[in-house]
Amino acid sequence: MVKEKTFAFFLGCIMPNRYPGIESSTKFMMEKLGYTILPMERASCCPAPGVFRSFNKVDWMVAAARNICIAEQMDTDIITVCNGCFGTLQEVDHHLKENEDHKVLVNEKLKKLGDYEYKGSINVRHAAEVLGYEVGPWGIEEFLVRKVKARVAIHYGCHLLKPVSVRGLDSAEKPSMLEDFLEPLGAESVDFVEKYTCCGAGGGVKAFDGNASMTIFEEKMKNIDAVKPDFILSPCPFCHLQFETGQDWLNKNKGTNYDYPVIHLSQLVAYCMGMDQKQTGLQFQMMGKDYIFQSEEIKQEEEVS
């Protein structure tokens, strides 16, 4: 039996190594919500679903299974705040639970890496889904100390919801998980053209052909800019990175003047739950450095501390 209200926190690469503010925000948010968050010692890259799966599917599964094994040894479900990590770990876990042949194959190779045996005893969760369906828009209100007044361009990213038959979370064509969740936080979701399309970073494209990646992103950004949101919100550090570096690239190469803050779901929720904006690490980001959340306090200071 896995431990209740406890998660093994899978960090991945981009969050701990580029956006530590998302990591501190996620810890703050989950602990305030009453969850115990445990570190996953010796975890590696998930490994990223677009690139490493493309090179060698078996090794991709083995490396992912190794990460899952670490959580299995802790008897806890995994939580991640990255769509890529979720994509890999959830998909491999789902696949190995159904495919006995591959489970044997993976366990054979796992022995070379250390004392690991994949059992299939835990589940892999994304914080967005825990917030959306477990805490819920109905349950978050009691934890809020302030609401944010903002028009938000929500970007789901691809691997949070797709493939739908594997994730089983929400519609990929018209999801509402994040919009519903953000409503009690005060944030207003603004619709824009082609809202649910890709940011252009995934599948190894950002590394393979940066210009192609930017061309896809340029259109995305144009559509977002057309509705002038206060910030862009995403549940994925890789999309986050693309929105940050991408705006910078467009400004330098295409003469744009974008400066939209890019905010991870955890950063926004942590802030609404009382975290100091400075602790969310927004000041370290490339875009929207001057942005200050427009908020409305709803609880006494004492209750916060």
């Binding site: 824009f192 053209v193 082609e194 809202k195 509705v227």
Partner: peptide, 8 residues
């Protein structure tokens, strides 16, 4: 593949 609506 889809029918796309411009929300604006």
């Amino acid at each position: 593949s889809e029918i796309l609506r411009n929300p604006l």
